[in-house]
């Protein structure tokens, strides 16, 4: 379970997020939505320990990742997986080496076991046979799937995704959504996704929060379909219905 309490994030004098609080439940696909520049990625980077919030606390599975406890933070980092926007594969390494990266340093694991796990993870994202390819030899969608295989190498209990559908064609995007849902269902992995891809949000999200730039925080929370059909907030209605109608007043 993830608990974000009164999170405030400033860059210099610029307040990006103020007093943001929410919870993510175990096994949930939780999507953070909002228009560009509202602080979605900043919030995600706080949640994965890349940024330290100006104020507030983030508890993930009982660990306070905002406390200055490097040992706990390292334990937390080993327990999560992150899929970055462009896959963030190491360009000089083959796909196999990229996926095996999180397994490095496990002396108890033989090269044969690592090899089998790598093949299995690549198979889970439909990239069987691509282990010797370099990232530059792959399409955008394949890079993302390979990034997902790497993020899942250690079977993390929580997976974070930064705009996984950006730059993908609708078919590839839908394929990725299917993979995400299958992993969530099959392994019970909690998933936190930053996205503004409406089709994907509607397809995968169990619950969403919507961030707003002017409010510097959450303006809506709940089931995406419910927010689309029943929200009274013009910004929420505009976002989920992809229209400017609600904003004209």
């Amino acid at each position: 379970m993830i608990v974000v309490e009164n999170l405030t994030m400033k860059f210099g004098d610029d307040i990006i997020l103020q007093d943001v609080s929410f919870e993510v439940f175990q096994g949930e696909i939780f999507v953070i939505v909002g228009v560009s520049g509202c602080g979605k990625s900043t919030l995600l980077k706080n949640m994965i320990g890349l940024y330290k919030p100006t104020a507030g606390r983030i508890m993930i599975e009982g660990i306070d990742i905002t406390a200055d406890d490097e040992v706990a933070l390292n334990r937390f980092r080993r327990a999560i997986g992150v899929l970055f926007q462009a896959g963030a594969l190491i360009g000089s390494m083959s796909l196999a080496d990229n996926v095996a990266l999180p397994l490095m340093g496990r002396r108890s694991m033989s090269p044969d076991t690592v090899d089998r796990i790598v093949k299995m993870k690549l198979g889970m994202v439909n990239l069987a046979g691509y282990e010797n390819h370099l990232p530059l030899e792959l399409s955008g969608g394949m890079k993302k799937r390979a990034g997902l295989a790497r993020a899942m190498a250690m079977d993390p209990t929580i997976l974070f995704f930064d705009e996984p559908n950006t730059g993908l064609d609708p078919v590839t995007s839908a394929e990725l959504d299917v993979t995400v849902k299958a992993i969530n269902r099959g392994m019970g992995t909690t998933m936190v996704i930053v996205s503004h891809d409406l089709a994907s949000i509607m397809s995968v999200a169990h619950r969403v929060i919507m961030l707003d730039k002017s409010q510097k925080g959450i303006i809506a929370e709940g089931d995406p379909l419910d927010l689309k059909e029943n929200s009274k907030d013009p910004k929420v209605v505009s976002f989920f219905n992809r229209s400017l109608e609600g904003l004209k007043t």
Binding site: S94, R116, K119, M120, L122, G123, M124, A128, G129, Y130, E131, N132, H133, A182, I183, R185, G186, M187, G188
Partner: peptide, 22 residues
């Protein structure tokens, strides 16, 4: 829950040779 995990795995993938040799 174990069935769910097992269903995710594609055992064929373990036997597919690399498309390009190392």
């Amino acid at each position: 829950e174990f069935k769910g995990i097992m269903n995710l795995l594609d055992m064929e993938a373990l036997h597919i040779p690399p498309l390009i040799s190392e």
